[in-house]
Design a protein around this nucleic acid. Structure first.
Length: 453
DNA sequence: CGACGGGACGC
DNA sequence: CGACGGGACGC
């Protein structure tokens, strides 16, 4: 049996949490052995011990195990890479989490939310751009924030950096200049460290005593779908509601899987897996929708969604470069949010129903079912057709008036012609160069989108 | 003077 | 669902 080294005469439990977040909690098949675990996990770092928990009487595995790494970054990387993978043919996919520190009594999973944001001390002269430039070498940054005096606006010399992956935050903490004093940030809203007095928390030497358990109020801007106990989202980051979403995942997902998933919500314009530094299709994907209603709905439905089973996706807004600070932009945001709030929420408990059910409102239905370009006038009925689009419908054709409404937006449409009894039709235009999509990258998606039209 | 060490997010 | 062992150091 593999054992943690017995190199000191002090209780070993003190090593298990040193350094913090360097131990994995693995939920796996009962048949998996320590050797198999060590074999699979050893490529991610220096393993200091593997231990399969067994029933005291029967000595049978309980299907859970701990894997201790030398460094937190190694453990995080192993978690990100191994979560959801099948270790031995025919066994269930493993779930991998950072283990709770042994002194901790709670048995909640350690969420990515708690592992991706770091807290740093920086020169007062640092701008948020400086902060980003300094810490981007350790990983992809979701956002940077500097704590400032609210009245004068001057920096307090403290900042937060949110990465997309726990391993990136861990690498930053391990490798950045010591003068930054980088540590993991305590999650924002919950009262900081309530019961964990037992000499040092898993976060390292966090000594900043009080610091505001005062906030018991709901941080959500509005009632939200309840995705189990998925952690709260920071709505006050630099980015609020946009048409762009960033999806983060620990499981390996293919471009096709991500595409199919986000394409369930009508209005998807763009979806691309971002390769990580090692060229693996993991980590995160960028998705853009044609409108706020769609992106909002997609975030609601897919953030915290388990896909594949055992792997929770995180989906959040990212800056899409649009300015929504104008009165019109704000109204659009407000409109969408109120629609979403008042929409009958088909409960999350209903087994993650992922049907692209679009109850919301007539207004929103139009916004979301139909892609963006504005309506254009039809060409005179007797115009000569200079270009025709051949359209294949799957599963079946839509009403001609709907098609007209959609296809007239991309050129001067003369008429919609459906071939009777077939699932095909022609869109006749009086001009060449009918523009379907302005984005070059979206062309290949065209065929997949037909049935949403 | 200058080294040291400190540390928390507008609701 | 899925959370914490067995064995015995060295001055």
């Amino acid at each position: 049996m593999e054992e943690f080294p017995t190199n000191t005469n002090t209780k070993q439990t003190e090593n298990l949490d040193e350094p913090p977040n360097s131990r994995l909690f693995v939920v796996t098949s009962r048949s998996i052995t320590e050797d198999e675990l060590r074999e699979s996990f050893s490529v991610y770092g220096d393993i200091h011990g593997v231990w399969v928990v067994k029933d005291k009487q029967t000595k049978e595995s309980k299907g859970i195990a701990y894997v201790k790494f030398a460094k937190s970054s190694q453990a995080c990387l192993a978690m990100e890479e191994m979560h959801g993978r099948v270790l031995v043919e025919g066994t269930k996919p493993v779930k991998v989490f950072i283990a709770q520190s042994r002194s901790s009594t709670r048995h909640r999973d350690v969420e990515d939310e708690e592992l991706t944001r770091i807290f740093v001390m920086i020169p007062k002269s640092f701008s948020e751009e400086d902060l980003k430039d300094t810490f981007k070498e350790y990983g992809d940054i979701e956002y940077c924030v500097i704590i400032k005096n609210k009245s004068t606006g001057e920096s307090k010399g403290l900042g937060y950096v949110r990465y997309y992956k726990p391993s990136q935050a861990a690498i930053a903490i391990e490798n950045c200049d010591k003068t930054y004093r980088a540590i993991l940030a305590e999650p924002r809203t919950k009262a900081p460290v309530t019961e964990d007095y037992s000499g040092g928390t898993s976060r390292g030497d966090y000594s900043g005593g009080g610091g505001g358990g005062s906030d018991s109020s709901n941080q959500y801007a509005f009632p939200m779908a309840d995705h189990g106990n998925y952690p709260a989202i920071d709505y006050r980051s630099s980015v609020d509601f946009t048409c762009c979403l960033m999806m983060s995942t620990r499981a390996a997902l293919s471009q096709e899987q991500v595409f199919a998933l986000f394409d369930l919500i009508p209005g998807m314009e763009y979806c691309e897996l971002q390769r990580d530094a090692y060229g693996m299709n993991k980590g995160h994907a960028l998705i853009r929708y044609a409108n706020l209603g769609s992106s909002f709905y997609a975030r609601e439905k897919l953030n915290g969604f388990e896909y594949p089973p055992g792997n929770r996706l995180s989906v959040n807004f990212v800056d899409d470069g649009e300015d929504r600070s104008s009165p019109v932009g704000r109204m659009a945001v407000q409109f969408v949010t109120t629609q979403m709030m008042s929409a009958p929420w088909n409960g999350p408990s209903s087994s993650q129903s992922m049907k692209p059910s679009f109850p919301i409102s007539p207004m929103l239905r139009i916004q979301t079912d139909v892609n963006l370009p504005p309506l254009k006038k039809l060409a005179p009925p007797d115009s000569k057709a200079k270009e025709r689009l051949f359209v294949v419908f799957s599963p079946s054709p839509l009403p001609p008036d709907v098609l007209e409404d959609v296809f007239c937006r991309y050129g001067s449409l003369i008429e919609v012609h459906l071939v009777p009894g077939r699932k095909v039709g022609y869109m006749k235009y009086s001009e060449k160069q009918v523009r379907l999509w302005t984005e070059g990258g979206a062309c290949k998606q065209q065929k997949n989108r037909r049935h949403w039209v």
